[in-house]
């Protein structure tokens, strides 16, 4: 039984010209697994993420999350259910209030979703920071004084603060230096194991997506063109785009070795 099921989702943007951003997109994510969603800029993967996060509405199609008709939820029910489906975006600075402190950002999530008494917040915040390998004494610091990698760890702490079952990560590691990226990938894998989290891990870089994903879906021009276990998609790519994404992965061979 899937945790998240997206069925035949479609969306057309009506701007200066009509753009079919999503066309009959279907995918599913099981509890505790990572589905990697990979594709080039403009393929529709962030549009799909916005639908799943209820930041935008599809023209057609259905989304079920945790046994509920996700698109039918309104008001109080939706606010309560949002604690189960959290997100981390590419730019952590944009996700926080510019003058927010670490504890302020985490307390906001606890206030909105946890139902935890205010007196328990400080202990919970220290615990969350420890879970993402940050020192609890960072709590009073303004987020703007943290490095990009530290800010992204706070964004992850905020996402897990509400006890979600699914976290959508939209290009969450794309702006980080490679060594920090590796450490945060390892952190995500550990949190998944410890907390039983499922991830929808969205990215353009198949080398990164493949490192963390159990299954991979490949998106091109608003459509899913290939889905399968990560090892199978990499070893036997079916779609032309998948083959191009594989070919574009830089390897550590010097240029003389290239065709």
């Amino acid at each position: 039984m899937s945790l998240l099921t997206v069925t035949d989702l479609s969306k057309t943007h009506h701007g200066a010209r009509r753009v079919r951003a999503l066309e009959d997109v279907s995918l599913s994510v099981d509890a505790g697994e990572t589905l990697g969603l990979v594709g080039p800029s403009g393929c529709g993967k962030s549009t799909l993420a916005r639908m799943i996060l209820r930041l935008d509405r599809p023209d057609a199609g259905a989304i079920r999350f945790d046994g509920q008709d996700w698109l039918a939820l309104r008001g109080r029910d939706l606010r309560r259910a949002r604690g189960g489906l959290q997100m981390v975006f590419q730019d952590p600075a944009a996700a926080f209030h510019p003058r927010a402190t670490v504890q302020g950002a985490l307390a906001e999530a606890l206030r909105l979703h946890s139902g935890m008494p205010r007196a328990a917040w400080a202990t919970r915040i220290a615990d969350l920071l420890t879970q993402v390998d940050l020192a609890p004494d960072l709590a009073p610091r303004p987020l703007s004084t943290l490095s990009g990698g530290q800010q992204q760890r706070v964004a992850i702490a905020r996402a897990i603060a509400t006890g979600p079952r699914l976290v959508v990560l939209d290009e969450a590691l794309s702006a980080l230096d490679t060594s920090i990226r590796g450490r945060i990938l390892a952190l995500l894998v550990r949190l998944q194991r410890d907390l039983g989290l499922a991830y929808l891990f969205i990215g353009h870089d198949l080398a990164v997506v493949r490192a963390i994903s159990h299954r991979i879906a490949v998106m091109d021009a608003g459509r899913i063109v290939e889905t399968g276990p990560a090892t199978k998609v990499l070893a036997h790519p079916q779609a032309d785009l998948t083959r191009r994404l594989i070919a574009a992965i830089p390897t550590l061979s010097p240029p003389g070795d290239l065709p």
Partner: peptide
């Protein structure tokens, strides 16, 4: 830096399902 590089020869962090 070389150890942090990811390509298809890097070991995956999870087992495929």
């Amino acid at each position: 830096l070389l150890a942090a590089h990811l390509d298809l020869s890097s070991p995956p962090l999870v087992e495929a399902r």
